[in-house]
């Protein structure tokens, strides 16, 4: 369906702007600025919200299983399995169940975002020196207090690193969500690819791609700042 409509749409544009068909990518971005910026914001917003949901679920899952080697193995295997499903396929398979738009996008992104967070949560909590938790218990901290005031604080750099990897991962995958009419820069990429060969099609796909890359770099920079602000000086590397 997107195939036929895309083609019609593409050729129409090519005719209309035939005279100025060959613009540079920078000119193209300049012309499309008013469209690209909202799309980038939507893209970032979708990714960050899904990362947040994945972080809550992932840390929760990690906390539930980290004490048991078997549980840790199963949780890691399951979340890895999700990641092996091609994103295009997963989103495609979700459309009949959840319809188009936001729901399949969110579900897919959250599922993909889980692995790095779950794995790093387990690794981070597992890496806490047993002598420290022994001391914490020994001076009268309850289980929950040890977890929230000691273990999670010490595992935080690892967990945050997992969240950061997730975000990067989702930046790319979110673009594919445009296939399910999800929001973001994927729209540009898809419509560009669909019109491949016609005027400015490459520019359009390239603009979307560049947008994703720039967005990813900016967000990564923000993570560096978050990491410095939220990690105790006593455990900063």
């Amino acid at each position: 369906m997107p195939d036929s409509s895309g083609r019609t749409h593409g050729s129409a544009v090519a005719v209309t702007i035939a005279g100025v068909a060959i613009v540079s990518i920078w000119e193209f971005i300049g012309q499309r600025w008013n469209v690209l910026v909202p799309e980038a914001l939507l893209h970032a917003s979708a990714v960050l919200q899904c990362t947040l949901i994945a972080a809550v679920l992932g840390v929760l899952l990690g906390v539930l299983v980290y004490r048991s080697p078997a549980g840790s193995a199963i949780a890691t295997a399951l979340t890895s399995a999700i990641l092996t499903i091609p994103s295009f396929a997963l989103i495609g398979l979700l459309i009949p169940v959840l319809g188009l738009g936001v729901p399949p996008t969110v579900v897919a992104l959250v599922l993909y975002g889980l692995l790095p967070i779950v794995r790093n949560t387990i690794v981070g909590l597992d890496g806490v020196d047993p002598a420290i938790t022994d001391a914490a218990r020994g001076i009268g901290m309850g289980r929950a207090v040890v977890l929230t005031r000691v273990e999670l604080r010490l595992a935080w750099p690892a967990i945050l690193a997992g969240i950061r990897v997730s975000t990067q991962l989702l930046m790319g995958i979110a673009a594919i969500a445009a296939y399910a009419k999800g929001p973001g820069l994927g729209t540009e990429i898809f419509s560009g690819l669909v019109r491949a060969g016609s005027a400015n099609a490459t520019n359009e796909a390239l603009a979307g791609t560049l947008g994703v890359v720039v967005l990813a770099l900016v967000v990564d920079g923000i993570y560096v700042i978050i990491s410095r602000l939220t990690t105790s000086r006593g455990i900063r590397v």
Partner: peptide, 29 residues
């Protein structure tokens, strides 16, 4: 937990909380 707050506990390599300052470590109990 109540019992342990009334019994001092010191272990090998101190088991200090690395993310807390010396003062915060001492202030835990």
């Amino acid at each position: 937990d109540q019992l342990r707050r009334r019994i001092g506990y010191a272990i090998q390599q101190a088991g200090l909380f690395p993310h807390l300052t010396v003062a915060q470590n001492i202030a835990v109990v």
